[in-house]
Computed example of a mutant assay.
Amino acid sequence: MPWMPELFSESVLEEWRERHARRKIVDVPYYDGLLAGEPDALIGAFAGEPTVFHPVRGRLEGEWQLRAYAAEVRGWFRARGAEAQELQHVVGPQRGFEEVLVTGPTGALPLALVADHADGSHLDEIRIYFSVEHFIGHRVTRQPLLQAAPHVELPPVIAEYLRALADADLEAASAAYTKAGTIRSADGTVAPDLHEFHAAICRAGGLVLDACRLTGDERSVALEYNVLRLGDSGAPPQAGVVVFDLESGGARIKAARIYDDVERPRLSQP
């Protein structure tokens, strides 16, 4: 997911097979589908009215908005010589997620998307997450896309991690990660020190997230959330997603990659 390969022409599928060195294209990566120049395939991938939530463009709904969006994306990539590299994707029975790195002359943008497909194949909607600062030069407050789900079943280590952040419990937050654990921010930078990354949040008063939906498998999960409070900033709720890679058995977090526009506290200078 998100696109269904049987809807694209054989010439396009053959190009993807050669590029990805695959004998068969089981599912079509998001940007491969957008850049293929076959909007009918994109429309046909949805069970009903196409719906895409985009950080810059907002809610795109209906056939003509999706066609216009796909044409705009193709033009943007061509004009800048940009490329999209799929980093990973995980597909479940009713939902899947994909991580992408969009690269061009001005740098790289990490991006994640979650696609709902309740019938197991056709899409219901796609939600895209990245920091818009790359495009417009400043952060924005992205309103929640989903309602909180108090009973969402989180892996125990992630549930404990969210509790530690909310309680500003520095030791517990840091202990959720393996010794070689990493956190990548929405701008693509990796925190040089996990303990200090969490210390900055705890000094500010903690970070409270509402879990909305969890997508993934035993290795990697994408948690869509609303940030309710970061310290005493008083900012309104904001939507985001974080992808966690878990060690075997799920006892610790190996890596976290954040996709939102929330400005977290700066690390202390040495």
Rank of each mutant, 00 (worst) to 15 (best):
residue 140 V to H: 11
residue 250 G to M: 06
residue 244 F to E: 11
residue 36 A to P: 04
residue 183 I to N: 05
residue 30 Y to H: 15
residue 55 P to G: 06
residue 153 E to F: 00
residue 81 G to W: 11
residue 5 P to W: 05
residue 231 G to A: 04
residue 40 D to V: 02
residue 186 A to H: 09
residue 171 E to C: 00
residue 95 R to D: 07
residue 174 S to E: 15
residue 164 A to F: 01
residue 188 G to L: 08
residue 160 E to Q: 15
residue 130 F to W: 10
residue 129 Y to W: 07
residue 12 V to K: 11
residue 74 R to T: 06
residue 96 G to I: 09
residue 49 E to Y: 00
residue 188 G to Q: 10
residue 60 L to M: 08
residue 235 A to S: 13
residue 118 A to P: 10
residue 156 P to V: 05
residue 28 V to M: 03
residue 42 L to M: 03
residue 85 Q to E: 15
residue 185 S to G: 15
residue 236 P to I: 08
residue 211 A to H: 06
residue 32 D to M: 07
residue 194 L to K: 04
residue 172 A to K: 12
residue 214 L to A: 07
residue 111 L to M: 14
residue 58 G to M: 09
residue 173 A to L: 04
residue 139 R to L: 03
residue 226 N to W: 01
residue 118 A to M: 04
residue 109 L to Y: 01
residue 107 G to M: 09
residue 254 K to A: 13
residue 270 P to W: 05
residue 111 L to E: 13
residue 147 Q to S: 12
residue 123 L to S: 06
residue 129 Y to F: 14
residue 199 A to K: 14
residue 39 P to H: 06
residue 34 L to Y: 10
residue 49 E to I: 09
residue 185 S to I: 09
residue 238 Q to E: 14
residue 120 G to S: 04
residue 31 Y to P: 01
residue 79 A to R: 15
residue 89 H to R: 15
residue 131 S to T: 13
residue 141 T to I: 12
residue 225 Y to G: 00
residue 71 A to M: 11
residue 147 Q to Y: 05
residue 192 P to E: 10
residue 191 A to F: 01
residue 19 R to Q: 14
residue 62 G to C: 01
residue 135 F to G: 02
residue 19 R to V: 08
residue 233 S to R: 15
residue 144 P to G: 04
residue 49 E to N: 08
residue 93 P to N: 10
residue 230 L to D: 08
residue 141 T to G: 05
residue 252 R to K: 15
residue 253 I to F: 07
residue 21 A to Q: 14
